[in-house]
């Protein structure tokens, strides 16, 4: 088989797997979406209020926190994986939680990776809201909470962009979740769960293992799904940034 035939055959089989709703492929995509979606959601709950506080309040250690967030944006995912692994492994300080090699461990690792990204982009969006908007809201009788709502609404396009960017980083990430999740798929029926389905295997970790084991069609199918999700997220980010720039709050 020539190299072109090998690739074409791989793509054809991959499309057949996706079109046929292969349970193994679907379970992997499901775990990816669940883990990255949950991590992004929890990170947003932390990052958006945090970015508002950083923007609107002066407090001790603010500059150090900003440095930490900027460092966190470029944090190598394998380092985060190693850190979470050490924390959660049975001999580690949080080993009693028995979270290592579970989707929850993967969520924790992705949360650490994604929170600085959402915080940083949200902060830029909130800082771009003219101070006159905030002062008007106060002047019209708004409480601190009312004013926060006004500012967040003005920055909403930038904030949604930050969440999508965070999700894009999470779903494409491989190093950390490979270390703390273990890339596990069930090899037998466990507690009613079907054989061969994913437990902690995600699109990215599965691509690495399927490529290593030579099952190129499955790897291509997973890659196509991953790239489709990423393209959709990036398209949404581009669209929102365009809308935000029209309003000067991207």
């Amino acid at each position: 088989m020539s190299s072109a035939e090998f690739i074409i055959q791989g793509i054809i089989t991959a499309i057949e797997l996706i079109a046929g709703m292969d349970p193994y492929i679907l379970s992997i995509a499901g775990v990816s979406l669940k883990v990255s979606g949950t991590a992004t959601f929890i990170a947003s709950l932390t990052a958006i209020p945090l970015s508002f506080i950083i923007s609107h309040r002066e407090f001790w250690g603010k500059q150090k926190l900003l440095t930490l967030i900027n460092t966190g944006m470029g944090l190598p995912s394998v380092f985060v994986g190693l850190f979470v692994f050490i924390m959660l492994v049975p001999a580690g300080p949080l080993g009693f939680l028995k979270l290592i090699f579970t989707p929850k461990a993967m969520i924790i690792a992705q949360y650490i990776l994604v929170t600085p990204i959402i915080t940083s982009i949200s902060l830029a969006a909130i800082n771009a809201v003219p101070i006159a908007i905030r002062e008007n809201a106060y002047s019209l009788g708004g409480s601190h909470r009312d004013v926060a709502v006004v500012v967040l609404k003005e920055a909403k396009f930038g904030i949604v962009t930050s969440v999508l960017a965070g999700f894009g980083r999470a779903i494409a990430e491989v190093g950390a979740i490979l270390i703390v999740g273990g890339n596990i798929a069930y090899t037998g029926s466990v507690g009613g769960i079907g054989e061969g389905l994913s437990y902690t295997r995600t699109l990215t970790t599965a691509i690495t293992s399927e490529t290593s084991s030579g099952d190129i069609s499955v790897a291509i199918a997973l890659g196509l799904i991953l790239i489709t999700i990423n393209l959709s997220v990036n398209a949404a980010v581009s669209m929102l940034q365009g809308r935000g720039e029209e309003r000067g709050t991207a």
Binding site: A132, N136, A137, S139, L140, G141, V150, K153
Partner: peptide, 29 residues
């Protein structure tokens, strides 16, 4: 603060409808 209001040099309206802009001071009350 609830008894004093100010109009600034730049209007700085909220990125919302005219109705919601005018209604803001009443909603927060």
């Amino acid at each position: 603060r609830q008894r004093i209001s100010m109009v600034f040099q730049s209007s700085a309206l909220f990125n919302d409808t005219v109705y919601n802009n005018v209604a803001y001071g009443l909603k927060v009350r």
